[in-house]
């Protein structure tokens, strides 16, 4: 069952984890993302120095999938270059939309790869991709 692969210890713990749920000190960029249909919302804050994401965190409220996704993304993007992070976001979105399925390829998403079961839950796809879309929108502006 798809939902058993999603509501795992790892994901539910991430959804309640406070480490990445905070403001970023000296943030250079902040962007708000909203899922109007279900009401998930988050504000992603980044501190980018010399093209490197020194810190990433978020505030907001939403379902376990959107919150865990945001937390995992914050962990993944920290220390990456802005371009590399963008590439990882595209890959994550591809995984959720079902276009990237190769296990080896998903490895570089680290813990976030655990959310791939959401690709089998069409009603929740928007929840999982919200933080990643928010990142892409943030670096565009």
């Amino acid at each position: 069952m798809a939902i058993d692969s999603v509501y795992t210890e790892l994901i539910t713990e991430h959804s309640r984890d406070k480490r990445n749920r905070r403001r970023v000190e000296g943030a250079t960029c902040s962007h708000r993302g909203v899922n109007p249909s279900c009401g998930d919302e988050l504000t992603l804050e980044l501190r980018v120095e010399n093209g490197i994401i020194e810190d990433a965190a978020f505030t907001g409220a939403g379902c376990a999938i959107s919150q865990a996704s945001a937390s995992m993304m914050s962990d993944l993007l920290r220390g990456k270059s802005v371009e590399e992070a963008g590439r990882l976001c595209e890959k994550f979105i591809g995984m959720i939309k079902g276009s990237v399925t190769d296990e080896a390829e998903l490895e570089e998403l680290d813990e976030a790869a655990a959310l791939r079961g959401v690709s089998k839950m069409p009603a929740r796809v928007k929840c999982a991709v919200l933080p990643w879309h928010t990142y892409l929108a943030a670096i565009e502006t």
Binding site: M1, I3, Y7, R16, S37, C38, G39, D40, G62, C63, A64, I65, Q67, M121, A123, R124, C127
Partner: peptide
Amino acid sequence: AGVHPHDAATILNDYGVAVRAGK
């Protein structure tokens, strides 16, 4: 308590129970 309504509705659906969740 402690469960976002979207997640609660997803789990209820797993047992065939259809409720609305959100705002």
